[in-house]
Amino acid sequence: MRKDIKVPEVKNVTLAVTREVNKLNQAEWNVHLINRNEHDIENTLVASTGYGKVGDEHQKTSTLRHFLETVPAKSTALIEPINSDIFHLNNEFWVSYYIDGKIYDKKFIFLPDTIKEDNLIYIKELDMEGVLHS
C-alpha cells in the first residue's frame, strides 16, 4: 500500500535562481542546484516547467529535462538559464537523485513574482546574488 512506502527526506539539497549582469549591462538569470551534503549525489534528473493563470488565460511552458551524472559534495551545478518573461508564473523544478542506491526526490516551486530584484540575497556557495529556495 502507498502508506507503507518509505520515502527518504531530501536534506541539504536546494535550488537558487541567480542574476548576473552581462557585458551589455543586461540581467541574465540562471538556475543552480546546490548540494550542501558531505557526500555526492548521483544520477540527478531535474525537470522544469512554468505554469499559471494570467487573467482568464492559462499559461504553461514546455517541460525541460536535465541530467547531471554526479554533483559532488559541497558543490553546485548549473541547471539552465531562465527567462525573466516567465517570472509571473509558478516555476517548478522536480529534482530526483540517488544516494547509496536510494532515490530521493523533491518538488521546488518558485511562486509567481518571487524571483525579482527585491528578493536577492548573497548565496555563499555560488558567490553571487540570487533567490534561494527555502
Rank of each mutant, 00 (worst) to 15 (best):
Gly101Asn: 10
Lys60Met: 12
Arg65Val: 08
Asn25Asp: 13
Asp4Lys: 04
Asn25Ile: 06
Lys74Asp: 14
Lys23Pro: 02
Ala16Trp: 00
Lys116Ala: 15
Gly130Ile: 02
Lys106Tyr: 06
Leu78Thr: 02
Asp105Ile: 04
Ile82Arg: 01
Ser75Lys: 15
Asp4Asn: 10
Pro8Tyr: 03
Phe93Ser: 11
Asn91Tyr: 07
Met128His: 04
Val46Gln: 05
Asn43Pro: 03
Leu132Val: 05
Asn91His: 10
Phe87Val: 09
Val71Lys: 10
Thr114Trp: 07
Leu15Lys: 06
Asn22Gly: 08
Glu38Tyr: 06
Glu38Ser: 13
Gly130Leu: 03
Pro81Phe: 08
Tyr98Ile: 05
Asp40Ile: 06
Ala73Thr: 07
Asp100Gly: 12
Asp56Val: 13
Val95Asp: 02
Lys116Val: 13
His32Phe: 15
Ser84Lys: 13
Asp4Arg: 05
Phe108Tyr: 15
Lys23Asp: 11
Lys124Glu: 15
Tyr97Thr: 05
Glu129Gln: 09
Gly50Ser: 11
Thr14Val: 05
Leu24Phe: 08
Gly52Met: 08
Pro81Trp: 05
Gly52Cys: 10
Thr63Asp: 02
Val17Lys: 01
Gln26Ile: 07
Thr61His: 09
Ala16Gly: 01
Gly52Ile: 09
Tyr97Leu: 08
Trp29Asp: 00
Glu20Trp: 03
Leu132Phe: 08
His39Asn: 10
Thr18Asp: 00
Thr76Ile: 14
Thr49Pro: 00
Asn90His: 14
Asp105Trp: 13
Glu69Thr: 07
Ser84Arg: 08
Thr61Leu: 13
Asn43Cys: 06
His32Cys: 03
Glu117Pro: 02
Arg2Asn: 07
Ser48Pro: 01
Ile82Thr: 05
Pro72Asp: 07
Glu42Met: 10
Phe93Met: 12
Glu69Gln: 15
Glu92Ser: 15
Leu24Thr: 07
Ile82Phe: 02
Ile34Glu: 00
